[in-house]
Design a binder for these strands. Sequence first.
DNA 1: GCCAACGTTGGC
DNA 2: GCCAACGTTGGC
Length: 141
Amino acid sequence: MAKQYWLMKSEPDAYAWDQLVHDGTGMWDGVRNHTAKLNMMAMKVGDEAFFYHSNIGKECVGIMRVTEESFPDPTAEPGSPWVVVRVAPVRALTHPVTLAAIKADPKLADMDLIRQSRLSVGRVTPDEWKHILKKSEKAEG
DNA sequence: GCCAACGTTGGC
DNA sequence: GCCAACGTTGGC
């Protein structure tokens, strides 16, 4: 299957990009939403995801790679349906791409991030992925 | 099975 | 701090 792309949100207060870079790898735990869970279950090793800082920053700050496919969330009650994936940082974006910049771009208006603002793990199409990468190379969104 | 109440998330 | 979106819960 072709590589898939994702966007994963975290409040930097709780878990920030710098922390993931520092750790070298991270378990994406604590997801308690079924749509997000299904997305995580669809992830394959090698898929890439934007790390998005919600609430504080409200911007995509880096790229990470899925290194281990979904398995039961050890922070959840035994028998509950929640899962985690393991991720590793690939690189920081040259410039963060803000939510405002994404909203302002008609090409990105249909993203999960926009249409379902509360979804913490969303799909990104290859076109959207490329487009956001291109934006991240420019100084302003 | 419907729906109102309530809690949480996240942008503004 | 407010509010919209949306998920969950509980009464009926």
